[in-house]
Simulated scan of single mutants.
Amino acid sequence: MPAFLPIAVVDDDASARVAMVDLIMAMGFTAIGFPSAGAFLGSDQFIHVCCLIADMRMAGMSGLELCRRIAASGRTLPTILITAYPDHATRMLAQEIGVRFYLTKPCNPDELLQALRSLLAD
């Protein structure tokens, strides 16, 4: 079930971002990487992506703050937050603002694929 619109990957760690984009593309989807939340929000691609995968901890704007900004803009963008430091309180905050999946880094490819299929099926 390929996505015809790209999946945005926002991560300030270049190697993690490239690896995630490569993994998503290997799954048959289209993906585009962004080095920061600000770069994504300021990009022409912001309105053309079908969903978002964002790292929680980034320099500048966090993944959670990025999700808040998107929600405040009125845009509904299916989102997966990823983190190397999962905690229940952050998961709850993310869910309150509409984040559907909160995955641990490094992501299990099967879990990521299941999350993407779920987001894109809605």
Rank of each mutant, 00 (worst) to 15 (best):
M1R: 13
M1S: 15
M1W: 13
P2A: 12
L5Q: 13
L5W: 13
P6D: 06
I7Q: 06
A8F: 11
V10F: 02
D11N: 06
D12C: 05
D12W: 05
D13Q: 05
A14I: 12
A14N: 07
S15N: 10
R17C: 04
M20P: 00
M20I: 03
V21L: 01
V21N: 01
V21G: 01
V21R: 00
M25S: 11
A26W: 06
M27N: 07
M27W: 10
G28K: 12
G28T: 12
T30S: 13
I32F: 02
P35N: 11
S36W: 08
S36K: 07
G38T: 14
A39F: 06
L41F: 07
L41S: 13
L41P: 08
G42E: 12
D44N: 08
D44I: 03
I47R: 07
H48R: 11
V49F: 00
C50V: 09
C50K: 04
C51H: 02
I53L: 09
A54R: 09
D55A: 14
D55R: 10
M61W: 03
G63E: 03
L64P: 00
L66A: 04
C67D: 04
C67K: 04
R68C: 10
R69M: 10
A71W: 12
A72T: 10
A72P: 08
A72R: 11
S73N: 12
S73F: 15
R75A: 08
R75Y: 11
R75Q: 13
R75E: 05
T76A: 13
T76D: 12
I80F: 00
L81Q: 05
I82K: 02
I82F: 04
I82P: 00
T83H: 05
T83S: 07
A84G: 10
P86F: 01
D87E: 11
D87K: 04
H88D: 14
A89Q: 10
R91Y: 15
E96V: 04
I97K: 02
I97N: 00
I97Y: 02
G98W: 12
F101Y: 12
L103Y: 02
T104C: 13
P109Y: 09
Q114W: 13
Q114A: 15
L116N: 09
L116E: 10
S118Q: 09
S118M: 05
L120V: 06
D122T: 15
